[in-house]
Simulated scan of single mutants.
Amino acid sequence: MSDVRTLPDTTASTPPALPLRSVLPAFVLDVVLAVTLSFSTLMLGLFGWAAWRGIQLAQQSGGVLDAATVQSRLGTPPVLFLIVMTLVGTGGTALVLYLWRRRATPTERRASIDRLRLPRTWGWALVAGLATFLFSTLMSAGGRALGLDLQPSNLDLIKDGFARFPVFLALFAVVLAPLYEELLFRRVLFGRLWEAGWPVLGLILSSVVFALVHELPGLNGKPADSTLFLILVYTGMGGIFAWVYRRTGTLWAPIAAHILNNAIALAVMQVYGDVPA
C-alpha cells in the first residue's frame, strides 16, 4: 500500500497536464466502481443477514412464517454486523480499486519508504492531523451557533459500537477506517488527477466525494442547510489530507494525520459525549 508521488523539482520544467477529456472519464469510472462495489457488498450482506434471521424466526416459531410476520419481527442488524459490513464493503472496495486501477510501482514503494525516514514527513502529518481536528471543531462550533444539526450521521452507530465493543470500535475508527479511506480517496481518486497534472482539481473532486460518502443528501435525515454545512466540513477535512499527501509524497502521511484526527475525536467523544463533524 506504500505509495509516493515525487515532489515537484523547481529546477525542472513541469510536464504538461493531460487533457481533462482523457482524465475525467477514468476518475468518474473510479467513483462509479467504488459506489457499485461498496453498495453491492452492503446489500448482499444485508440480504444474507435477513435470510439468516428469517430462518431463525421460522425455527423459533416451529414452522414457516408468512412474509408480513417475518418483516414485522425482523428487526435491525446488530451494530457489530453493520461495522463489519462497512469494513468489508468500503475497505474491500478500496483494496480492489487500488490493486486494479492504481497499484503503486516498486519504485513508488521504495520512494515512499524513503520519505518515511524524513522527520519533516512526520512533522507535516502531525500538523495536518491537528489542523484537521481544529478545522472541524471550529466549523462545528460555528454551525451549531447558527442552529444547525451537525451531529455526524454515524455518531449513534459509533457510540453504540464503542459501548458494546470498545476495543474493536477503537481499532476500526482510529486505524482501519483511515487506512482504507486514504487508500480510496487519496491514492485512487486524488492520485489519478494529481498524476495527470490536475492536483487542485483532484483535491476538490476527491474531497467532495469523500464528504458525500459521509453525509449523503436525502439519506442522512437532516435538513438541507445542515447537510450542506457538513459536506463543507468533510470536504475541508479531505482537502487537508490530500494536501499533506502531495506535500510529503507518501500516502502514509495522510494516513497518520487521519489516525490522529480520529483518535482525538474518539477521545473527545468519551469525555464530552459528542464529537465534531
Rank of each mutant, 00 (worst) to 15 (best):
62 G>I: 01
63 G>A: 01
64 V>K: 11
64 V>M: 11
65 L>V: 04
65 L>R: 02
66 D>A: 06
66 D>K: 12
68 A>E: 06
68 A>Y: 01
70 V>P: 13
70 V>H: 14
70 V>G: 15
73 R>Y: 03
73 R>N: 11
73 R>W: 10
76 T>M: 10
76 T>R: 13
80 L>G: 12
80 L>S: 14
80 L>N: 06
82 L>P: 06
83 I>M: 05
83 I>D: 02
84 V>P: 13
85 M>H: 07
85 M>G: 09
86 T>Y: 06
86 T>G: 15
88 V>T: 02
92 G>H: 11
93 T>N: 12
93 T>E: 02
94 A>E: 04
95 L>P: 02
95 L>G: 08
96 V>Y: 07
96 V>C: 03
96 V>G: 01
97 L>D: 04
97 L>P: 00
98 Y>D: 05
99 L>F: 11
99 L>V: 02
100 W>M: 05
101 R>H: 13
101 R>S: 08
102 R>S: 14
103 R>L: 07
103 R>W: 15
105 T>E: 00
105 T>G: 05
107 T>V: 04
108 E>C: 03
109 R>Y: 14
110 R>W: 07
110 R>M: 06
111 A>L: 12
112 S>M: 12
113 I>F: 02
115 R>Q: 13
115 R>C: 07
116 L>A: 12
117 R>G: 14
117 R>V: 14
117 R>H: 12
118 L>H: 10
119 P>S: 09
119 P>K: 02
120 R>F: 13
120 R>G: 11
122 W>A: 00
122 W>L: 01
123 G>E: 09
124 W>R: 06
124 W>A: 12
126 L>E: 05
126 L>C: 10
126 L>Y: 14
127 V>M: 03
127 V>Q: 04
128 A>K: 06
129 G>T: 03
131 A>P: 03
131 A>E: 00
131 A>T: 00
